[in-house]
Design a binder for these strands. Structure first.
Lengths: 349, 349
DNA sequence: TTGTAGGCGTTATCAA
DNA sequence: TTGATAACGCCTACAA
């Protein structure tokens, strides 16, 4: 990519990088021809094509995307708004998204606001100003203004990790089914009294859905779910630790606990360990598995594994389809897989 | 941001989004004036300014970044090349970087190649074509072509998580000191025979540095480090698990193990647990702490905490300084903090 | 304080 | 197959 000799012999001034015109001059053709040589090589004669390409190579020519975007009215750039980046499974998703897009010549413009700025309309505006051709949004709980702006600017978009949305296409997990698998497993082992450690549902549509799916399954199986047995908390190890302590302190009798994600599970298991409660002998623990590290927590636990990467890939494909003008396919709903690592019924008594 | 009514009454055609000229027409001024109203409001009279701003608001005007970039020769965009995204502390760093840049009006263009594409020159080229004003590179082990291209295009850049580089400014941790703190701690407890679980050093300059710092400290303290007691492996829970099993299988006598990161530590602790080896009673474990979850692993372990976020922030500030034209400050070297959670000497015998 | 006009580097249309 | 030439939408002297 860099010219073998950064400066062209003859042009002493090492000023700005080479433009189409420079290449054209060196190759002895017009700028238009150079443009074609680069984008539609088959339109040129063999001779000129090689001559132009050589000149471009020699000058270390790199196209000016701004000029191209201005002329073509598209930037080959996709924006993504992804809150709560660190300490979550989002990065895995984003990498998959980026890889899928990159393979098609698109680059990702990332907006990774911390929680407070999560719904700031300025985020999307910044992306729009950069001329993104499409946008990936995490979660379905976006303010209406976002969709309005997207529509006003005719930008295709996709919601990641969202099951349904009246607003547009989305790709998500079948979380209700995932929760049902977890609960069914516990029920089959004979557990009747369940506890739940949920992620904070305020302003978090995914956590809400996860909790709803769980409670619905509990009801279907006729299990007991005491209101006191549901603890809602921030996601993280420490919060999970504290939440489990809270649950224990309430002394609500439960024989199994379902954690809404593996961060909470990790913390909860630590708390149980510290309290001297054996898992799964005295207490069963099951968990959603977003980050795939739950498998290595100390006591074996049962999880439903969500295919995080695939969300990113599917979202990428969907976006590319929209950009190509294809009709968007039906919203994919990715299945979760139950992984059983400990099978124990409730402790007697 | 979206216009209250997406379409302007009168202009039935809901074609492309509004341009400067459209706003100018609606406000009854020239395009130049609109441009000024948006970028240098203090140059206008109170009256026209409000009139123009109202018109812009009414049309839901969003600047065309491509045109702006073309005219200004800068895009207010920074590229980042960040390999191995998932399952690492990079996302935390990137979020901090993004936040710092966003506060100054810059947006991040992300390139998150999987390992194979990690050093593909096309990555940087794609960024350059998008017109990034500067570039953030993860790690110092970049191919020379990268620096050549950066220089040829006069793009400021910064190396993240790199201590020194002849190529340019970088911000990193004092890893040697971090390793020294760990080893000194173990030595002070009376450990003499140490084992090391290292991340793979092939093609990974950070892992290399970490291992070097460790072995140097071991030598300084006169401890024993049998070649067989150093196991090098991929980073991750499962690899850590396997690596510890390997170490145990070799039967090299060690009383303490240092893990090069907390993924490895987590896996190693699981392996020790499964092997029925008590930590720290029978075996002490110490670890670098990149991801801040080691604290919640089952047995308490001693760690050195590396300020990951700060790397991102510092890098952002450095980049902004370069973009401003300021002389870059000296390469910051962030200190690590020892966190002692278990203090036990070697098991007798 | 405001308008005018040239230029930024590509792409695309239309002739040649 | 190639060369002019006109957009693309914005910024910024320079002039008024």
């Amino acid at each position: 990519m860099p010219p073998s000799s950064p400066d062209v012999p003859g042009s002493t001034e090492a000023s700005r990088s080479a433009s189409l015109a420079d290449v054209a001059a060196l190759a002895g053709v017009s700028a238009g021809t150079v443009s074609r040589a680069l984008s539609r090589p088959d339109m040129l004669s063999e001779a000129t094509r090689t001559r132009v390409l050589a000149a471009a190579e020699r000058l270390g020519y790199v196209a000016n995307g701004a000029a191209r975007a201005l002329a073509m009215r598209r930037s080959f750039t996709v924006g993504a708004i992804v809150p709560r980046f660190g300490r979550s499974s989002f990065p895995t998703m984003v990498q998959a998204l980026e890889a899928t897009l990159a393979a098609a010549g698109y680059t990702l413009l990332l907006s990774a606001p911390e929680r407070a700025r999560g719904h700031d309309p300025a985020l999307l505006r910044a992306l729009l100003e950069r001329g993104v051709d499409a946008v990936a949004l995490l979660g379905a709980d976006q303010p209406p203004a976002v969709f309005a702006a997207l529509a006003a600017h005719r930008r295709p978009f996709v919601l990641l990790w969202a099951e349904h949305s009246a607003q547009g296409p989305c790709v998500g997990f079948d979380e209700a089914d995932a929760g049902a698998q977890l609960v069914a497993h516990l029920a089959s082992l004979g557990h009747r009294r369940i506890g739940i450690l949920s992620g904070s549902t305020v302003d978090n549509e995914r956590a809400q859905r996860r909790l709803r799916g769980l409670t619905a399954a509990v009801a279907r199986h006729g299990l007991q779910l005491h209101p006191e047995a549901v603890v809602e908390t921030e996601t993280g190890f420490a919060p999970g630790f504290a939440a489990m302590q809270t649950l224990l302190a309430r002394r609500t009798p439960v024989t199994a606990v379902v954690c809404a994600n593996d961060y909470l599970a990790a913390g909860a298991l630590s708390a149980l360990d510290q309290a001297g409660i054996a898992v799964p002998a005295q207490m069963s623990v099951a968990s959603f598995n977003d980050n795939d590290f739950a498998a290595f927590l100390h006591p074996p636990l049962t999880t439903v594994r969500l295919p995080i990467q695939e969300i990113g890939e599917q979202a990428g494909r969907l976006l590319l389809a929209s950009l190509r003008g294809d009709a968007p396919p039906a919203n994919p709903l990715l299945p979760a897989t139950l992984v059983v690592r400990a099978s124990t019924g409730p402790a007697p008594g």
